[in-house]
């Protein structure tokens, strides 16, 4: 028995520095981020520690906490506490943390706190206006202003103007496109005059790159809405584009009828 105890002590002394080094070394975060892109946030919580010294590791942990199921307000508060620690920093991690924090208030709590989310998007944009996360936050802020803030039930409120005011602050073209698109769609839903929202749809379409149904729909929309507004030339342009790009789509028959009608109007007005 006596010989065992010194051996244990020696072994512990040998292992301890290795454990200490391991604990302090920054983790390779690629597996964690890859797990998040593959919708496996629970793996992140196994791989990383909440109280890690590296800021990037704590950010990834918080992201994993937000994504892990079952989601609860308690888990969101836990993630939010870590993000609140990271958000005031001077680096890009701070901007990411501030953005995610706002997202928690907007999307992840069972009772969202929209004014608080809006305030955090605005603060982030004021503090780091050129950060991608601040720019993306402005798009989200725009959505809140279009539909929820300050008071969605006031029929007299001009809901487009506050969102439009954000556009000049968004320098990333694709993000600006996304807000333009949503201002345009909101104009329809909120019964605004055509001249008020159609330019936003056109601006979004001109940037291009909108995937899924929305991109195809947008071409039809601009054609149909231009026709409604009496802009026959633009209607023709978009109907022709649609037929060139989607000749076998089930909407093609209707669009051909519309194109013929538009061409007749243009011929009558001498613009063919």
């Amino acid at each position: 028995m006596r010989s065992v105890r010194p051996a244990r002590i020696i072994l512990s002394l040998l292992i301890w520095p290795l454990l200490a080094a391991g604990a302090g070394a920054p983790a390779d975060l690629d597996p964690a981020w890859t797990a998040l892109t593959n919708s496996r946030p629970q793996d992140v919580l196994r791989l990383l520690r909440r109280d890690a010294s590296a800021r990037a590791e704590r950010l990834a942990w918080a992201a994993g906490r937000i994504g892990a199921q079952p989601a609860s307000d308690a888990s969101m508060r836990e993630a939010e506490a870590v993000l609140a620690e990271l958000a005031p920093g001077p680096d890009e991690i701070a901007a990411e943390a501030a953005y995610l924090r706002a997202r928690i208030y907007q999307m992840h709590l069972s009772e969202p706190d929209f004014p608080k989310a809006a305030q955090q998007y605005a603060e982030l944009a004021a503090r780091r206006p050129q950060s991608h996360w601040a720019q993306l936050g402005l798009v989200k802020l725009g959505l809140l202003k279009l539909y929820l803030l300050p008071d969605s039930t006031d029929p007299a409120a001009d809901r487009l103007a506050p969102a439009e005011a954000l556009l000049p602050r968004i320098s990333e073209p694709l993000l600006r496109r996304d807000l333009d698109l949503q201002i345009g769609q909101a104009g329809i839903v909120l019964h605004q005059p055509l001249a008020r929202y159609l330019p936003h749809l056109i601006a979004a379409e001109q940037v291009g790159g909108i995937t899924g149904t929305a991109g195809e729909d947008l071409i039809v929309q601009i054609g149909v809405l231009s026709e409604r507004g009496g802009d026959w030339a633009r209607a023709r342009e978009y109907f022709e584009r649609y037929l060139a790009n989607y000749p076998t789509n089930v909407r093609a028959f209707t669009i051909r009828q519309k194109l013929e009608a538009v061409n007749r109007r243009l011929a009558q007005e001498g613009g063919a």
């Binding site: 959505l143 279009l146 039930t153 694709l174 769609q185 909101a186 995937t211």
Partner: peptide, 24 residues
């Protein structure tokens, strides 16, 4: 990332439109 951001914004806007529809 760009596509994910864009499609998320579209879905989010749709949720807001529908919620407003239910509310008003």
């Amino acid at each position: 990332r760009e596509r994910l951001e864009s499609s998320q914004t579209q879905s989010e806007a749709l949720m807001l439109q529908m919620s407003r529809q239910l509310a008003v």
